[in-house]
Amino acid sequence: MRPDLRDGLPPGRPLRLVAVHAHPDDETLATGLALAHHVEAGDDVHVVTCTLGEEGEVITPSLAALEGDGPALAEHRRGELDRAMGRLGVTHHLLGGTRPRWRDSGMAGSSAAAHPRAFAGADVGEAARALADLLQPLRADVVLTYDPWGGYGHPDHVQTHRVTARAVELLGEEVTGAAPALYVALVPASWAQEDRRWLRAHVPGGVRSPAGGTARVPDPDDPFPPGVVADDLVTHAVVDEGALPRQRAALAEHPTQVTLHEGWYTLSNDVAARLPGREGYAVWPASREALIRAQGEPPA
């Protein structure tokens, strides 16, 4: 069993934990189990969101007109995010204040990447300074974010990793003893394979999505995203099926992005993914060299 996120931290007081994410819903999809687990343990849990997801796809037919309307979709997703944070029981912050300094950059190659406020194009030092200033008064013990490849390569996820890693460095440079432990979210390959077997056994055929597509279970030989790594590269884990109801309740507040089923969900691509009650992490930057040897250089 891998150690949990309290590893090496002082016992006897609530843990202070902060997760940093790119868009609304990422917090619950990527780290929601850890957030729910630590809320239920009585810890002080926060989420920082870097953009309002202006470029997201909308899978709810009644809200389809929001897709492509950046300001309107941002406000709608802000509401979804606020409700999801209430379900998780965490304190929420937007990077840059009530009106985020940066916006969703869209997928790689999209026209949104050229927007002057696109987060993927932000100066890393400037964004890290803003994040460090937000983190410092929270006195976090632990910070969670994406791996260097952004889980599946979204430019804003990659940028969030860069910005968060630099912000934690700044805290260590400027305030002695103030740097929190930084963990990046990863999936052990054996878990990913188990999840695909579970999906094949539990996802019925012909399940339709709100937008009219059909849920698809990944084939056994489909490639995994770069966030799936060899088991020995995952140094820590949160395993708590009891926290799943809280994670599910938060996901249910993101209907423009997520369709929930019993034990699994789909996004706009209709590919079924499991909610397994466990999440893997690696301490950063100690794991950097091993991860890069295994997965190759992350995006520049």
Score class of each variant (00 low, 15 high):
His161Val: 15
His76Arg: 08
Cys50Phe: 09
Ala243Phe: 13
Leu170Tyr: 08
Leu182Asn: 04
Ala237Cys: 04
Leu63Tyr: 06
Pro148Lys: 11
Ala165Asn: 13
Asp82Lys: 14
His37Gln: 02
Asp104Cys: 11
Ser105Asn: 07
Arg196Met: 01
Pro255Lys: 12
Tyr281Glu: 12
Leu35Tyr: 03
Arg16Ile: 09
Gln247Ala: 10
Pro10Trp: 08
Ala112Thr: 15
Ala290Leu: 14
Arg2Cys: 04
Pro255Phe: 10
Gly68Asp: 08
Pro188Trp: 08
Asp240Pro: 09
Ala22Ser: 11
Ala72Ser: 11
Ala178His: 12
Gln193Thr: 15
Ser268Cys: 15
Arg197Asp: 03
Ser105Pro: 10
Trp102Gln: 02
Leu171Cys: 13
Ala128Arg: 01
Val238Lys: 02
Leu63His: 02
Thr214Met: 01
His37Pro: 07
Arg200Val: 02
Arg278Ile: 06
Leu63Arg: 09
Glu27Gln: 12
Leu251Ile: 12
Glu279His: 08
Leu15Asn: 09
Gly280Met: 13
His76Trp: 06
Leu171Pro: 14
Ala41Arg: 11
Ile59Gln: 12
Pro155Thr: 07
Arg16Leu: 06
Pro245Cys: 02
Arg129Cys: 00
Ser110Trp: 14
Glu173Ile: 07
Met1Leu: 05
Ala290Gly: 13
Val217Phe: 01
Pro255His: 10
Glu80Thr: 14
Val184Pro: 11
Val258Pro: 09
Glu169Asp: 15
Ser268Glu: 11
Gly12Glu: 04
Glu262Ile: 05
